[in-house]
Design a protein around this nucleic acid. Structure first.
Lengths: 146, 146
DNA sequence: CTACATGCAAATCCTTTGCATCCAC
DNA sequence: GTGGATGCAAAGGATTTGCATGTAG
């Protein structure tokens, strides 16, 4: 997704566009994974952009409120942020080995429909973290129990 | 669910059963909602049970590892803990009014199957938090946009 | 010009940890 | 008796906030 698209969308909604905001959006666009606040901040510093970490927090919060990014607790201390874009994705996280597998969004098509129809609830399932056990750890743990 | 059942299950796995552990299990059994660490601790104090908050953290962590309770980030700062029991339940949380609706577990039957079949991943979907907009807030926000 | 965003530093809040003591088994 | 659990106090880490200053519109 292009930074300009997001910038324009936000401006058209009447939001102010500042230098830190532009840069944070750009960093998110260039990232191929989700990022923590610290990650975003580090990338800015690496590019000699002086932005306070509090500003990163505030900007990501603002982007989330404007449905441009998702915020997810993947159980690693700091929340991760990710551009929503056109193709949301989700994660399977192994409780044992912490390995993360990406899964596509169509997995949630049924759930989305049911929630809207049965509960009239419009879910923002843009970046789910599902915890559980991967195949390897499952068989390993089963073996240990003997 | 009865405290004794859980106590026995854990003992049979070779775990030590102490006074704080028994009480924390009891508090969880008597709660009809999920509780934060602080909630659990408060209820202990109210019953004149002197248990350190660090112990509550450690015990809940231990119960989670033994699949007796779920731990969920419902976006309110502190994580909430809940006995898994026989009938897991989940929550729809409105991003606008913060209202929480409980939903039953059968909503996730399809997702569980797909994850196991397609990814060989055994999800621990015992207490999901799905964020989104409830019907009321949705129409309210739609009205504001005009 | 003015409302809003930022930088800076301090505060807050949740959670974890080290270590001496205690107790379940 | 002994390994594991607890209490206590302190540390740690993520996130928020107050306020003076800067700046987009």
């Amino acid at each position: 997704m292009e930074p300009e698209t997001i910038v324009e969308q936000l401006q058209s909604k009447g939001h102010r566009m500042t230098v830190p905001r532009r840069w944070i959006i750009r960093v998110l666009c260039e990232a191929d994974h989700h990022l923590t606040v610290e990650d975003v901040h580090r990338r800015l510093v690496e590019n000699d952009i002086k932005v306070d970490e509090a500003t990163v927090y505030r900007t990501l919060q603002w982007l989330k409120e404007n449905e441009a990014v998702s915020q997810t607790d993947i159980g690693q201390g700091a929340d991760v942020y990710c551009l929503i874009g056109d193709q949301p994705h989700h994660h399977l996280i192994c409780l044992n080995c912490n390995h993360i597998v990406d899964v596509s969004d169509d997995l949630f098509a049924g759930l989305r429909e049911t929630l809207i129809e049965r509960y009239r609830f419009a879910p923002r399932i843009d970046h789910f973290a599902i915890f559980g056990l991967c195949e390897g750890c499952r068989s390993e743990l089963a073996r240990d129990e003997d």
